[in-house]
């Protein structure tokens, strides 16, 4: 079986700034890979290119053997990849249930009109990220940062991904909420999900990943077991430099 996600010589420039500098890596089936680097290293930019929200300057992205680098975002999601956003982007005037519903919708207008939604699946997803049944009727303005991240997870899961990209899922969460999301990720790993995870909370991240890759100023600087990458001189220097 071909690798779930292969990034080859990915490059992205914004004017003179090289945000992604010929980065290559791949994620194996069922693997969970940490993508680490200081602020502005280019982690989110890589996610946006994988999803097609930003178009790469050069390089290719392959998902389960199919090149997706020229597809639209919805087409990539159909191929089985989905992401959460560092800054949660809920539909502000919709309930939690409706937010999840959008993620569950088929990309087919006729089916949207003629077939009814799956309320059971909405509830199931909401419960799986730690919402209660009563939360389904709440709107984003009533939610904490932790709840917004949970909603972001649920909407992303709703699209039915086989590869999930998580961008700063722990930022702004309480210790209890971090444990809850971590447990959810562990459960999904057991169920065979492939992950690429970005987090500044290295302590929370370590138990959730099989391997890590570090970037600095868009450039791949280290790769390997998490502890080894963290001990790497270049990585330590990059974090110290950023601090």
């Amino acid at each position: 079986m071909s690798s779930p996600l292969v990034i080859s010589n990915l490059r992205k420039t914004f004017g003179g700034l090289v945000a992604t500098n010929d980065v290559s890596f791949s994620v194996a089936q069922g693997e969970s890979l940490a993508l680490i680097g200081p602020n502005g290293a280019g982690k989110t930019t890589i996610f946006s290119q994988i999803m097609g929200e930003l178009r790469q300057t050069a390089g290719t992205i392959t998902l389960f053997g199919n090149e997706i680098s020229k597809l639209s975002t919805p087409a990539r999601i159909r191929e089985g990849v989905s992401r959460t956003y560092q800054v949660p982007r809920p539909f502000g005037e919709m309930t939690v249930a409706e937010n999840i519903r959008v993620g569950l919708m088929p990309d087919n207008i006729w089916h949207m009109i003629t077939r009814s939604g799956n309320a059971d699946r909405e509830l199931e997803l909401a419960l799986s990220v730690g919402f209660s049944e009563d939360d389904l009727k709440r709107t984003p303005s009533e939610l904490s940062m932790g709840d917004l991240r949970k909603l972001e997870m649920a909407r992303t899961m709703a699209t039915g991904p086989r590869v999930m990209l998580l961008d700063e899922v722990f930022a702004g969460l309480t210790v209890g909420e971090i444990a809850q999301i971590a447990a959810l990720i562990q459960q999904m790993r057991k169920d065979g999900m492939t992950f690429l995870i970005v987090s500044h909370d290295l302590k929370a991240l370590e138990p959730l990943v099989d391997r890590a890759i570090a970037i600095e100023q868009g450039t791949h600087i280290a790769e390997g077991p998490f502890a080894q990458v963290m001990a790497d001189d270049a990585v330590r220097a990059s974090y110290l430099g950023a601090a």
Binding site: S72, T73, I77, V102, D107, S116
Partner: peptide
């Protein structure tokens, strides 16, 4: 129906609708 929900979602955050797998142009 769900198409009404999807159209309102575009009014709130079009990028997120695309990020939910829906072709907003359509």
């Amino acid at each position: 129906t769900r198409v009404g929900t999807a159209l309102s979602a575009i009014g709130m955050n079009e990028e997120s609708v695309r990020g939910s797998g829906l072709d907003t142009t359509k």
